[in-house]
């Protein structure tokens, strides 16, 4: 009786595995279904940025750089290859200008010169 029960458990497990199919997703043809809070690609809203530099100060990976000439003239650069996707910039920004989407991060073959200009603000003309 015990042997019969054990064989039944094995048969159950085999049939279950055949029905369920593989666990892996054939990306990009399958749906990856990442959760909403997943820390993926960084999104930036230039209108909300004030050039205060709090995100630059708190980034642990030196992935953000602010070249500031005056209160209105500044450039904010972002280096995706250095970014650790930790979300500290999102927490530090008081204006909500920088945030994580739940898209997957892009890829590149040139890590060192991969830089995105998040905002380039010029001084207002008289």
């Amino acid at each position: 009786m015990e042997k019969f029960k054990k064989r039944l458990t094995i048969l159950n497990a085999v049939i279950e595995a055949l029905i369920k199919g593989p666990e892996t997703v054939k990306y990009p043809f399958g749906d990856l279904a990442l959760p909403e809070g997943y820390r993926g690609k960084i999104e930036f809203d230039p209108d909300k940025c004030s050039g205060c530099g709090l995100c630059v100060r708190d980034c642990p990976a030196d992935a953000l750089q602010l070249n500031k000439k005056s209160r209105e003239e500044y450039t904010l650069l972002y280096y995706p290859a250095r970014c650790a996707y930790c979300g500290q910039c999102e927490d530090s920004c008081h204006h909500g200008a920088i945030s994580h989407s739940n898209n997957l991060v892009g890829a590149t073959t040139h890590k060192d010169d991969w830089v995105l200009v998040f905002k380039e603000s010029k001084a207002s003309q008289e």
Partner: peptide, 29 residues
């Protein structure tokens, strides 16, 4: 395979399977 269930919980609530970044000085995020 069953370990993935625990990692799924952590991914849903903190945003990462392995690098959770759950803590901050003063509480959780």
């Amino acid at each position: 395979h069953d370990r993935e269930m625990a990692l799924d919980i952590m991914e849903e609530i903190s945003g990462g399977r392995v690098s959770h970044a759950a803590n901050q000085i003063g509480g959780v995020r």
